[in-house]
């Protein structure tokens, strides 16, 4: 079995309307790492994330998964291995019950019914939402929706979990639960977010994007503690690092 490493080589992307969104992005992400992808609005975070499972194809350079470039031919395999949790859970939950929504991925993988049910309950159990399995998704609260959206991805047991703004619209308790959940995952996590405190708590490494370019990359504390760098790219030094003791 190949190691699920993700490698981005000199990636450039230009939207069909001519807007250039990414230039010369290169980085390598090993299995099991938790990466924070930060940057101001319009820095290119979401655009970059969409390249990771082939929702967008690079105009230049390439994205390699386990050593093979993502192309139309390898798309199915890549999508099985890279799960994306979208920014708006309403986009992700489209079936009539939570169960059906979580079962959607495993069913598309062609798993037998018993295995599908086991995966669904396992994933819901993991995010603490098993009791909601028969509820229609649009009746859930924001935090529950987010947890179920994560479960829909866990059910396909990906090697890499990509999350776009996972803590947006969550109340403090929901956010805390999310952080604990993310810390507990053994898979690779790539988290695009403005929630820098979450990055400090969950990630080991951080990539700073500005204007479609990588402007800094390194260990979380080293980068985020650099006030000058943070301010220069529309960010700030997180509160949590200003104190000697965590609170």
């Amino acid at each position: 079995m190949r190691t699920p490493t993700l490698e981005i080589k000199n990636l450039g992307f230009c939207y069909p309307d001519g807007t250039e969104a990414l230039y010369g992005i290169s980085c390598r992400i090993e299995y099991g790492e938790a990466i924070g992808l930060i940057g101001g609005n319009g820095a290119g975070k979401s655009t970059l994330l969409q390249h990771l499972n082939g929702c967008l194809m690079p105009s230049e350079g390439m994205v390699l998964f386990g050593g093979t470039p993502i192309t139309r031919e390898t798309l199915a395999e890549v999508r099985r291995a890279v799960g994306v949790v979208f920014q708006d859970p309403d986009d992700q939950l489209f079936m009539s019950t939570v169960f059906d929504d979580v079962a959607f991925g495993p069913l598309n993988q062609g798993l037998p019914s018993a295995e599908v049910a086991a995966r669904v309950y396992g994933a819901l159990e993991r995010v603490g939402m098993r009791h909601l399995s028969e509820r229609p998704p649009y009746k859930l609260s924001g935090g529950e929706k987010r947890a179920v959206a994560i479960a829909t991805i866990l059910a396909v047991s990906p090697d890499i979990i990509v999350l776009d703004e996972p803590s947006s619209n969550l109340d403090p308790r929901g956010r805390r639960r999310l952080i604990n959940l993310l810390r507990g995952f053994e898979q690779t996590r790539i988290i695009a977010t403005h929630d820098l405190e979450l990055v400090v708590e969950v990630c080991q490494r951080v990539i700073v994007l500005d204007n479609g370019r990588i402007v800094a990359e390194g260990p979380v504390r080293e980068i985020l503690d650099n006030e000058e760098l943070m301010l220069a790219h529309g960010l700030e030094r997180p509160h949590i690092l200003r104190h000697q003791h965590p609170h």
Partner: peptide, 15 residues
């Protein structure tokens, strides 16, 4: 996109 990200290939499958 959310559907294809979870392996939807145009065939409808039921449990």
């Amino acid at each position: 996109r959310a559907m294809v990200s979870r392996g939807f290939d145009g065939q409808i499958r039921v449990l």
